[in-house]
Computed example of a mutant assay.
Amino acid sequence: MPSFIERINSIHLDILKEVGNIGAGHAATALSTLLDRKVDMKVPDVRIVSFDEMMDLAGGPENIVASVFLRIEGEAPGSMFFVLSLNQAEHFIKLMTGLDCKYNNYSTYPELAVSALQELGNILSGSYLSSLSDFTQLNLYPSVPQLSIDMVGAVISFGLLELSQVSDFAIVIDTAIFEEEDKNESFDGHFFLIPDPASFETIFASLGVPIDEYNN
């Protein structure tokens, strides 16, 4: 019997990329309104990776990042993380609030900066989840997003504490965010969508591409 990861192919990933691009379009519209400037978002790649690869993509277990975590409830439960490097997080804080923040071990971001990052996470995660729900016609509901600024390993381990024994893979949706004034510079983040084990089958079946149908 092929392993789970061997049963996923380019058809499944292409459909997830399309879902991601539509979610990115919704998020770009919301961000443009929030920032009062034109923002464009693209999804250059979607893939399925192991937990170790997920941490490597975010800079390694000891790399400090800004991360928004939420639980997905409903017909395909799971977890979602949006991860930004500190430099990118601080860029968005400045765009959204005018604050010039630098994180270090002795001081954290002021409350206004934290609220800005939470709002950014709300917009992005909500847009992707809404797109996935529309595509699959599944009822999916987000929990209240939680912002963490910590090492990648600690952030992900905390979020997945209850799932670590049963879920081995994450769907990675790369996200490139461009400002209209400078299309040559993008700010790249990662969405990690981690369906509970049975939810992978539910999501792909609802997208019209059951996992086993394309692997016979």
Rank of each mutant, 00 (worst) to 15 (best):
E111A: 10
S85Y: 05
D168C: 09
D196K: 14
I15W: 02
L138Y: 13
F4H: 09
G60F: 00
N21W: 03
L84A: 10
F4L: 04
Y214V: 12
Q146T: 13
G98K: 11
F169W: 08
Q118A: 13
R37T: 15
E75G: 05
E180G: 13
D196I: 09
G189P: 05
A116N: 02
F187R: 04
E213P: 00
K38W: 10
E90Q: 11
R71F: 02
S115T: 14
L31T: 04
S167R: 04
I93E: 06
L124S: 06
S127P: 06
F92P: 01
F82T: 07
T108M: 08
F178E: 06
E6L: 03
P61V: 08
N104R: 11
N87E: 12
L140E: 00
A116W: 14
E53F: 02
F158C: 00
K17I: 05
I15H: 08
F135S: 06
N139L: 15
V65K: 09
F200W: 12
F69W: 15
E119W: 06
L163I: 05
V144G: 08
N105E: 08
P195M: 11
G23A: 07
S67P: 05
G153Y: 11
D182E: 15
S3G: 08
F200C: 00
N139G: 10
V114I: 14
E75V: 09
I8N: 07
E179W: 08
I156E: 01
F135Y: 14
N184T: 11
M96I: 07
I15Q: 14
L99D: 08
E18H: 04
Q118P: 00
I72W: 02
I72Y: 01
D212H: 12
D134W: 13
I22R: 13
D196A: 14
I8Q: 05
I15F: 02
P210S: 07
K38L: 13
D188W: 10
G126T: 02
L117E: 07
I22D: 06
M151C: 03
R71K: 15
Y128F: 14
S127M: 07
M80E: 12
T175L: 10
F169Y: 15
I173R: 02
V152C: 10
S186R: 13
I64M: 11
F4Q: 02
L117H: 13
N139V: 14
F135T: 10
N184W: 03
V43N: 03
D188T: 12
H190I: 05
I149T: 08
D36Y: 03
S115H: 09
T33H: 07
E213G: 00
D168T: 04
I48N: 01
F204A: 05
E75I: 01
P77V: 07
D52S: 15
M96F: 12
K183G: 00
S186F: 15
G121D: 03
G74D: 04
G153T: 01
V65H: 11
S125Q: 09
F191K: 02
G74Y: 01
I173E: 06
I194V: 15
V155Y: 03
Y109N: 12
L57A: 00
L160I: 02
S164D: 07
Q88G: 10
G59F: 01
L129S: 00
S130F: 07
L31C: 15
I8F: 05
M96Q: 11
G78N: 00
T108S: 14
S32L: 11
V172W: 09
G159I: 10
D196E: 14
V166T: 15
G159D: 04
P44Y: 13
G98H: 08
V166M: 05
L84M: 11
T29L: 12
P145K: 05
G121F: 11
L138F: 10
